[in-house]
Simulated scan of single mutants.
Amino acid sequence: MIRKTLNASQLQQEVNRRIHRLQEIVEDGVKIRVPRPQLQEPDKTGCNWNMTHFGNAVGFERDIEGVLKAVRAEYNLNTEVKDTGNPFGD
């Protein structure tokens, strides 16, 4: 499967959205802090990012791991640097 690419903020938002839709987390009213994705060499599946050190996640590690696995299978971190050009035009 070819992964779509998202920038770091978009990936962070997608993981956050999916985590906070999980039934157990909704029922417990827990707010989990989602870290920014960290670029890494592509792993054996081809994924080039990972997230570690979620905040307020005790007891939800398995749920978070499931979300991460799904999102990592769908998306890669965009590594392209946008050329904003020379703002001074010289």
Rank of each mutant, 00 (worst) to 15 (best):
Q40T: 14
F60V: 09
Q23A: 13
F88S: 11
R21W: 05
V58A: 12
I2C: 12
T5D: 03
L68I: 03
D43Q: 10
V71A: 00
S9E: 14
T52I: 15
K4F: 08
G85N: 08
E80G: 13
E61V: 05
P35M: 07
K31P: 02
E14N: 02
H20S: 09
Q23E: 10
N48Q: 03
P87W: 07
P37A: 01
I25Q: 06
Q10V: 06
K44E: 15
A57L: 08
Q23G: 06
Q10G: 05
R18S: 01
P87E: 06
V34T: 12
K44I: 11
D43C: 05
Q10K: 13
G89W: 14
P35L: 00
N50P: 02
N16T: 15
E41P: 10
A73R: 15
R21V: 07
N48W: 05
A73G: 10
K44M: 14
L6Q: 12
D63F: 12
K69E: 13
F60L: 01
D63C: 10
V15P: 03
L68T: 04
V71M: 09
G55W: 06
N86W: 01
V26W: 05
K31F: 14
A57N: 01
Y75T: 02
R72M: 14
A8T: 10
H53C: 08
G66D: 08
L6R: 11
G89A: 13
G66V: 04
Y75I: 01
N7D: 10
L11I: 00
G29E: 01
V34D: 03
E74K: 06
V30H: 05
W49N: 04
I64Y: 01
D63I: 01
T5F: 09
V34R: 06
N78D: 14
N48M: 03
N50K: 11
K4R: 12
L77N: 03
Q13M: 10
I25T: 00
V81A: 09
N86M: 04
W49H: 05
V26T: 09
H53W: 09
R62E: 11
I32M: 03
D83N: 12
V71I: 14
P37D: 05
E14H: 02
G66A: 09
R62K: 13
G29D: 03
W49P: 01
I19T: 04
A73K: 12
V34M: 08
K69Q: 12
Q10D: 13
V26G: 09
N78E: 15
N76Q: 06
P35K: 03
E24K: 09
D90C: 12
N56W: 07
G46D: 01
E74F: 07
V26D: 05
K31W: 10
Q23N: 15
G46P: 07
R72P: 04
L22N: 07
E14L: 12
E27S: 15
E80K: 10
D90W: 15
T45K: 15
E24M: 09
L39T: 02
G89S: 15
E80F: 07
T79K: 15
T5W: 02
P35D: 01
Q38Y: 00
A57I: 01
G66S: 11
Q10C: 03
P87F: 05
C47E: 00
F88T: 11
V81E: 11
N86F: 03
P37I: 05
V26N: 00
